[in-house]
Design a protein around this nucleic acid. Structure first.
Lengths: 247, 247
DNA sequence: GTCAATACTTTGTCATGACAAGCTGTCGAA
DNA sequence: TTCGACAGCTTGTCATGACAAAGTATTGAC
């Protein structure tokens, strides 16, 4: 019934925290199906004793997986494996990353890259003074040889110096991260509207076709605004997929 | 510099866990602006001593707020308040709840409520055999006197017995919860398309107008599929707002 | 046979103590 | 003046021990 972790699998000489070793091992067992959906895992106390670690440590390991949506605890009952289809919460990733991890060979064409004074919308989103100079980017994103999205971004001037080539070859988030600015939190709004004539032409759609719109502002851990984006996607070729979990 | 919690504010006779009392109080101070953005909060050890609780307890309180994106910890430095605009991760709530909490007095018209055999899409989403009977619901949701969305839902027959009146007066999630089925995880896909003639008429839109589409499957903690929904929203009146945070 | 009280299992909360690890500022040597 | 070593501060990890609370199974009375 149980496929327990063996005591030999925790290594006290490793710099990796014990709770994380236990959590990782548990996760493997679950993902590999050795502990099936709905199965109860060994209780905290026994597991701790058997592995020779303290209960808080096993508890923390389990907690880690609970937060990632793999396990569910019930007091008086035990800890169960939940449906494997549903894993982690929504991720903070860019379209480029999304496409790359899913095989659809992205290509980027930089339509515009310039420094302009921030307009009202951009200034409000990035929380800077109206007219402050920002880097303004317009890109056309292809996937599988077809145009997929028109992307507009504004980035505070002092963060990073971008070139056409960087942008053509890397995702914006990747570039930001590389420069030491790690997006941690973001708000985004997803809506829809009809394509205007220019948009339609660029995206190879008919005029009036439905477009998905997404605007996003991203901040780093310190609350510094990193990026404002306003993008439109061909609804015929793209949709947003979200995994939610409620505490 | 700090606006600390006073010891009198933790109540050991309360059934509310100490760590939660501390977390709630801290959250209040932050939301009220008494601890500003970027400020460091009192360190764990001092805070624990001053409040007369243990360090693990204060630690857990802080951890709680870190997970909700209000605080950021740095070893060797301290714990800082992050941008207050960005709050919790996406919530698992229904449109009805969303509207009600934001003043826009929802009204629901039940267009259809019947038991039908599950078609391919529904069966796949709910993970049941093709042809298994499910409760099928079609509703028209109004907000502020205007039609806003057409909602289709399929629910496994054995979960709950629904009436027109229930549905007109309560959100579906509310009804599910009341029957003891708590949605915990969900996957949803957001897209867009143009309105057909019938949809346009029902929603008071022109034919070809952009509609936001959202399909969702929700599961309870045990991995049991509770609901499949396929909804269309007037893009001119509605958009999805998400708050993301990355670990 | 049915139902309520009880015992048991399992997770939830909390305290105390200890040491490690990462960051920052200070102080001294070159 | 500059830079490295060091000390001190703060969070990170871990152990041990104890009791509470919730859910499940058993037992016993009727």
């Amino acid at each position: 019934m149980t496929s327990p972790i063996r005591p030999a699998e925790v290594d006290r000489t490793s710099p990796v925290p014990l709770y994380f070793q236990v959590a990782t091992r548990l996760q493997e067992l679950i993902e590999r199906g050795e502990i099936g959906v709905g199965d109860r895992i060994e209780n905290e106390v026994d597991l701790a004793e058997r592995l020779g670690v303290s209960r808080p440590t096993t508890r923390r390991a389990i907690q880690y997986l609970v937060e990632r949506g793999m396990l569910v605890r019930k007091r008086g009952v035990g800890t169960q494996v939940v449906h494997p289809k549903v894993r982690r919460p929504v991720e903070l990733s860019s379209l480029y990353d999304d496409l790359r991890t899913s095989d659809r060979t992205p290509r980027t064409e930089v339509l515009k890259l310039e420094v302009v004074p921030a307009g009202g919308e951009v200034a409000a989103a990035l929380e800077i003074e109206l007219g402050t100079e920002v880097t303004w980017i317009e890109r056309l994103r292809y996937a599988g040889g077809e145009p997929l999205a028109i992307m507009h971004n504004a980035i505070p001037m002092d963060l990073i110096r971008l070139t056409d080539r960087d942008l053509a070859e890397h995702g914006l988030y990747e570039l930001l991260r590389r420069a030491g600015f790690v997006p941690r939190i973001a708000t985004q709004v997803i809506g829809a509207r009809s394509a205007g004539a220019t948009e339609a032409r660029i995206l190879s759609e008919k005029r009036g076709a439905s477009l998905l719109t997404m605007t996003r502002t991203a901040w780093d851990a310190g609350g510094r605004a990193l990026e404002y984006g306003s993008h439109v996607y061909r609804a015929s070729r793209y949709s947003f997929e979200l995994n939610l979990s409620a505490g």
